[in-house]
């Protein structure tokens, strides 16, 4: 039965393509852990993650591999970007769905499409030539800073936050809105007390996903944050430079000699991978429970 055999072979081939993604994910984990885990165990997960000093090429004494300042840096910048992007993005999403006249809707949708397309290295370059000098001149300091990183990441996160929030708001049943308006509530009242609460979990998922994306972002932050592997001093000084986990890998892979140093960079990759995976998992969980609650 040649026809049946052919059909079965095609199905097998399609199955193989489908499994490719799984195989790649597994390979990524295997190689990341193969290269980084031995070091992590040898050096100690605690000393690595909570160590305050990163000094892989020590002139005298032992080199040290503490990435705590970078974990703080990554989280700091990602959180900062959300503080900027969420209010703006949410406002834009509400505007888009509830208020915008058709021409403004079309304009914003086009704008979002454009913004998503801008490569991160171009955004980083924009930050480097415009934002960093601007911060240096207006707020003082070095210019390369947490603030600059947060602003650039906020711009990157903006289109995603707008579109996911807009979807969540659109999904709120029209009847809720009409019921509220029919009771004599103002438009703003309806948005604040009916629409946003109903869209809450969808927006939360967007925010968490945005956090994961921001922590994983490399080029844009690398070019504007100054990359010093120490904690800002004092901690709340957003004008201080900082280094993220992603930047740590990019900057040092170039010259890291095989051995502890290179393995420490793979270990940094493991920490990054785990952090982003946790955030993505939470975001998916939130979205899923939202869909189940919606039924």
């Amino acid at each position: 039965m040649t026809r049946q055999t052919r059909e079965r072979m095609i199905e097998a081939l399609l199955f193989a393509s489908a499994v490719t993604a799984v195989v790649i994910v597994l390979l990524i984990m295997v190689f990341l852990f193969k290269e980084g885990a031995p070091f992590l165990i040898r050096y100690g997960i605690h000393t690595f993650c909570l160590g305050m000093e990163w000094n892989p090429i020590a002139m005298d004494g032992e080199p040290s591999y503490g990435i705590f300042p970078m974990i703080v840096g990554s989280v700091y910048i990602a959180a900062g970007s959300l503080v900027l992007a969420v209010p703006l993005g949410l406002g834009c999403a509400v505007f888009l769905v509830e208020i915008a006249p058709p021409w403004a809707q079309a304009l914003i949708r086009r704008g979002i499409e454009l913004l998503v397309g801008i490569p991160s290295v171009v955004l980083g370059f924009f930050g480097l030539v415009l934002l960093v000098p601007l911060i240096r001149e207006s707020a003082g300091g070095f210019g390369f800073s947490i603030l600059a990183g947060s602003v650039i990441l906020a711009i990157m996160a903006l289109p995603h936050i707008i579109s996911i929030s807009a979807d969540a708001i659109t999904a709120v049943p029209e009847t809720y809105k009409q019921a509220s308006l029919a009771l004599g509530a103002t438009r703003w009242h309806t948005i604040r007390n009916v629409i946003l609460p109903a869209a809450r979990s969808g927006i939360a998922a967007a925010v968490i996903l945005g956090m994961g994306n921001s922590i994983g972002e490399t080029m844009a932050v690398l070019m504007v944050t100054g990359n010093t592997p120490i904690l800002p001093e004092p901690l709340y000084d957003v004008l201080d430079p900082v280094r993220t986990l992603t930047a740590n890998i990019v900057i040092e892979m170039n010259y890291a000699a095989p051995g502890d140093h290179r393995e420490a960079l793979f270990a940094t990759g493991i920490v990054l991978f785990v952090m982003v995976a946790i955030l993505n998992a939470i975001s998916h969980r939130v979205l899923k429970s939202r869909m189940e609650a919606g039924r």
Binding site: A21, I24, F31, I215, F266, G269, F273
Partner: peptide, 20 residues
Amino acid sequence: GVECLAGIPSIVIGLFGYAF
């Protein structure tokens, strides 16, 4: 798996690409 792959930071894919 497809979802996971979409969520992996690009620099991690770069590191993996280098090692693999």
